[in-house]
Nucleic acid binder design. Structure first.
Length: 186
DNA sequence: TGAGAAATAT
DNA sequence: AATATTTCTC
């Protein structure tokens, strides 16, 4: 089964292009880091303009237990999906619904945080580098808490055993920032 | 205004 | 339990 340690960022193609990163480099990201991206992106010259991920929102007014799915919209998690995702039929203009943090969304989140670094891993920046449609600062802010709490928990108990997350999402992210790791300087 | 954390609500 | 919302502080 292929697999093993697949740290291959397949969604790498969905990363924001230089044009989108440029505005970020204004002050959010250290120039050295931003510059590194430019090099990568420049050399990659990948297609995929911008894959917009969106959450499978289902408006449910009364929301207490019991929920039925009538719409013909198959619950398609953006996860395990390359770009297609909501681009196909999902039309924007969704209402507010509970955000479903799929593994894919997590990846964007984790990766965004990793790229920015503890220094700039703020909701505002994360939201931007994730480039997920419909996501808000509050969304990531809320999850950021969970994420941080999770880290604290794992670190507090033991700094190396719990590779798995007690959730259905599976927070399996490697401590490795990435191959580029251009955080040099200083 | 924006982020971080805790409490709190659904 | 997971996510959202609110409250408070910096």
């Amino acid at each position: 089964m292929g697999g093993g340690c697949d740290r291959v960022l397949e969604w790498e193609a969905g990363l924001p292009t230089a044009a989108e990163l440029t505005p970020l480099s204004h002050q959010l990201i250290p120039r050295a880091l931003a510059a590194a991206f430019r090099i990568e992106l420049a050399g990659a010259s990948s297609d995929s303009p911008t894959s917009h991920l969106s959450f499978p929102c289902d408006d449910d007014d009364d929301g207490e237990e019991d929920e039925e799915e009538e719409e013909g919209e198959p619950e398609e998690n953006a996860a395990t999906r390359g770009g297609g995702g909501g681009g196909g039929g999902g039309k924007a203009g969704n209402k507010k619904a509970r955000m479903v943090w799929t593994a894919e969304l997590h990846r964007r989140f984790i990766d965004a945080v990793a790229r920015l670094g503890d220094r700039a891993a703020v909701p505002k920046a994360i939201v931007q580098v994730m480039n997920v449609e419909g996501i808000t600062r509050e969304h990531v802010a809320s999850h950021l808490q969970k994420y941080r709490v999770y880290l604290k928990r794992t670190r507090a108990t033991n700094g190396s055993v719990p590779p798995l997350m007690p959730t259905t999402h599976g927070f399996t992210f490697s401590p490795q920032p990435s191959s580029d790791t251009s955080n040099r300087g200083g």
